[in-house]
């Protein structure tokens, strides 16, 4: 039997637990006549792992930069962790945010050890030297070690970052995003430089962070087949969100057509996948000219 106190406890805690980490309302980016993003509304809860898919130029990376506070939308409203994202609140909100962008054209040629790259992700790193230089580094070192362990790069701590392979550099950059234990992690094609084994491990790690640390993860990926077993939902983006499919839900074929055109084949994978559950009809191949959804 449930007592009155129990009910009050639930009423007091559930709204706080369920308050969205990201709340986007009617976002437009770009001119009204030629918007890159338009009428985009989205709500993501604590501990949710969302994948964003869409064709080239759909505005996926732009959306991440808007959520990260790097670009200001031309219309609409953004709340992060229940607080409105404005120039005044931006730097405070960004303390709880980890962001990994696509590294176009390689990383800069700065002489740095891998551990120092990871340390840059700590909020204390950018403080004036008199505040940090003579303070004990024990806690910081423990956080760096923990982040390196998460991406399985502990053995490379003292290696020159420039001499690491592309995949290893990517894992160090991911550790940099994770080291401050962000509440929200934004990843733009994080698996681009990784081999299939490390891709798999990356998705497993992100799933674990969502389940155990209640981290919220938003990840842009091209390969929807690779992520469906791990994410909670997939947002199909092309200027606006055409469809937001939750686990166990199918993405209708007209959504695929609206996003990618007719040149796409949709092949059923297995029942746990998002997008292909009922899909006996949908799984029929339409055309094989341009890419595929599931292999």
């Amino acid at each position: 039997m449930v007592s009155v106190d129990d009910i009050q406890f639930e009423q007091a805690t559930i709204p706080a637990m369920n308050s969205p980490v990201i709340h986007l309302s009617h976002i437009r980016f770009g001119s009204e006549s030629k918007p890159i993003l338009d009428h985009l509304s989205l709500e993501i809860e604590v501990g949710h792992f969302m994948g964003i898919i869409g064709p080239n130029g759909a505005g996926k990376s732009t959306l991440l930069t808007i959520i990260a506070g790097l670009r200001k939308p031309d219309a609409g409203h953004i709340d992060l962790f229940g607080t409105c994202l404005t120039p005044k609140t931006r730097s405070t909100l960004q303390r709880d945010l980890g962001y990994l962008h696509q590294a176009h054209g390689g990383m800069p040629d700065l002489p740095m050890r891998a551990a120092e790259v990871v340390a840059m992700g700590l909020t204390e790193f950018n403080q004036p030297l008199w505040k940090t230089l003579f303070r004990s580094k024990t806690k910081q070192n423990a956080l760096i070690d923990e982040a390196l362990e998460l991406v399985e790069m502990t053995g490379y701590k003292d290696h020159d970052f420039r001499k690491l392979s592309g995949g290893q550099q990517q894992r160090i950059r991911l550790a940099r995003a994770l080291v401050r234990k962000p509440k929200l992690l934004l990843l733009d094609e994080p698996s681009a430089a990784l081999d299939s084994r490390h891709q798999e491990k990356l998705y497993q790690l992100l799933r674990k962070l969502c389940d155990e640390e209640k981290m919220t993860v938003v990840m842009v990926e091209h390969d929807v087949a690779a992520i469906t077993s791990y994410v909670d939902s997939v947002a199909c983006l092309n200027k606006h969100i055409h469809y937001h499919a939750k686990r166990g839900e199918s993405i209708p074929s007209d959504v695929w057509t609206a996003m990618y055109g007719d040149h796409i084949s949709i092949v059923t994978h297995d029942e746990s996948c998002i997008g292909c559950v009922p899909a006996v009809k949908d799984s029929a191949k339409k055309s094989t000219h341009h890419g595929h959804h599931h292999v």
Binding site: A68, G69, L70, R90, S91, T92, Q94, R95, L97, Y99, L100, H101, M107, P108, L110, M112, V117, M120, G121, T123, F125, N126, Q127, P128, L129, W130, T132, R173, R176, A177, R180
Partner: peptide, 21 residues
């Protein structure tokens, strides 16, 4: 003394530096 580490972070990766506040 005040900004060397921020400048260093910016030189390494301007986008991530901005996103980290």
């Amino acid at each position: 003394i005040t900004w060397s580490r921020s400048w260093w972070s910016m030189a390494f990766d301007m986008i991530t530096a901005t996103a980290s506040g």
